[in-house]
Write a protein that binds this DNA or RNA. Structure first.
Lengths: 330, 330
DNA sequence: TTGTAAGCGTTATCAA
DNA sequence: TTGATAACGCTTACAA
């Protein structure tokens, strides 16, 4: 590989001048700039990022932490992040946390060693204090997931509103007995609390009481969805509608329901979350709450790069719109 | 961040000795090793990968090129690669080529600058000669896609056999009029040629002639599948079975067929390729050819790491099993 | 406007 | 068995 010295020699100039050209510094005469550019081209020269990194420069690499890439929601989020990053000349290092604290920390360690300029976290596993302690080593940006403090920029959706819209839609369709499936808990605090609040708000407004037997926590996959509907079918007192935290659970419910001879939306109305491709694949097609994934990816990269260029940037909260998509399952 | 010098100072030894401990070199007394280890722990020391890279060491980063991460097949391939790499202490840098030659090359350039130790290519866009020219800068491994020369290790499936099994299955079910959808071309050469061959072999053995009107090339998405079935329905002379190059196309066909009041498998038998999650989501569930994605990912990392440790490694071709999964669509 | 030289954190070479 | 030192490729004071 050609080095900066090779370029310097070929152009008959010093390393410094070459470096100045590479970094667009002022005080280089047009003539010499030409010379350098020509030599660079001739040698097919690319600056060595490791050396730049070592010297304390930017790495042009951004890390992204997702729970799992096979989850289509996160796949499309990574997709939009990668595309946006590439346009800006950055690479994307991905890490699947698999919801594991240790994996998450191992990845955040890349900040310490300047392997990545910054990390976009799409989910948070460790306590925020722990994660925050890495913030001194590089930029952290929260995308999708978030915390209550405003210590790092966040790109997020109004999940409470999304859940509210979904629940309200079911109520407007005449449902009073509504089950709730979440990937998190059904707490005031903790994972998924915003959606819980939105859901509860809608029910409260309609004067509906929540039946704790119809709350299913820690549900994630298609398989989980199948189990949920099985459990519901065994109940004496059944709900008439099911609100779910993801299209995958909703999809599982629809698939298994059909297997059991249940008609949707007649026997049960189902609503998903995310608007993943599966929403249009299942039959009946899924009513769901759309998360503007592409916008989230673009915004995250935009903000991240701004942060990198100007570390003193104001820390802001970017909220993106969320909307209800009505299809056939409700 | 603590550096090797800090560790040296704290342990009262030299950088060299510390380095020896880090790299498990011989000739370090147990006592001093202890000392170093203790100091490392106390300082929370992590070696700086940029410095190691610059010094010509391994980067513990492996690049993976996929056409697009939102394609579930590639998402699960990346998933298994990432998991296997993590176990071995490696990071994974992903690049979506979006089937773009330039993007592919931009990424291969990371090899030149020692940003990644090696690249796993799951698809090939540029001419092989072009790609091969990067092989001198680092390890290249082909996974899923392949070329005819054996210049780099390849982890692949017997696609011809897969296609043969699928076509044979349709024939065994009594079909004589079989359409063919491929993501590539219907050539002797070029993308997807193996599957073409397998398909053709099965038909030939059964004495069936191929109707060129029933060949659909360059089909990829669910949307494409919908278009295919629409076209078929407009034909005078229709096929009775459709062989597709991916579960997504097959899924699209099933979805649209249902919309049009067609019954599957009665009116048409459909067979997919990949055994993606969608295969079990559509109704009727999809008969398909399973590609052992996890095995491919694991094997690729295993071989890649072997190559990195021993660049003189024999270049081999690793072929993994492929099988037919019969469900309801045939 | 240009160049010299020091230094980023490692590891390999050589000498002790 | 240990340590001093040079080198990897780059950027940035500082000097000219």
């Amino acid at each position: 590989m050609a080095t900066i010295l090779d370029v310097a020699k070929l152009s008959g100039l010093s390393k410094t001048t070459v470096s100045r050209v590479i970094n667009n510094h002022p005080y280089v005469s047009d003539k010499k700039r030409e010379l350098v550019l020509k030599a660079m081209k001739e040698l097919g020269y690319t600056p060595n990022p490791s050396a730049r990194r070592l010297r304390g420069q930017l790495t042009t690499t951004i890390g992204v932490i997702v729970p799992r890439i096979v989850n289509p929601f996160f796949a499309s989020l990574v997709n939009s992040i990668e595309l946006a990053a590439y346009k800006k000349g950055h690479q994307v290092l991905i890490c699947q946390s698999y919801e594991d604290k240790e994996k998450e920390l191992a990845f955040l360690n890349l900040l310490k060693t300047k392997q990545v300029d910054g990390v976009i976290m799409t989910s948070i596993e460790n306590d925020w204090e722990v994660i925050e302690s890495y913030n001194e080593y590089g930029c952290i940006l929260l995308c999708n997931d978030y915390v209550n403090q405003t210590v790092v920029p966040m790109v997020r959706l109004d999940q409470a509103k999304g859940a509210y819209l979904g629940a309200k839609h079911l109520i407007d369709r005449g449902h009073q007995k509504i089950a709730y499936c979440t990937g998190g808990l059904f707490d005031e605090q903790g994972k998924g609390k915003d959606r819980n609040q939105g859901f509860q708000k809608a029910l409260k407004e309609a004067g509906i009481k929540i039946n704790p037997k119809w709350i299913f926590i820690d549900q994630h996959t298609i398989e989980d969805g199948k189990q949920v509907i099985k459990q519901i079918l065994e109940m004496e007192d059944r709900p008439t509608a099911i609100f779910t935290g993801s299209d995958e659970i909703a999809g599982g419910i629809i698939i298994e329901a059909k297997e059991q001879g249940i008609t949707i939306p007649n026997d049960f109305a189902i609503i998903g979350f995310d608007d993943q491709p599966i929403a249009e694949i299942v039959d009946p097609k899924l009513t769901t709450i759309r998360q503007p994934v592409d916008q989230m990816g673009n915004k995250s990269i935009e903000v991240m790069i701004k942060m990198l260029e100007n570390p003193a940037l104001d820390i802001k909260n970017y909220e993106l719109p969320i909307e209800l998509i009505v299809r056939q399952s409700t």
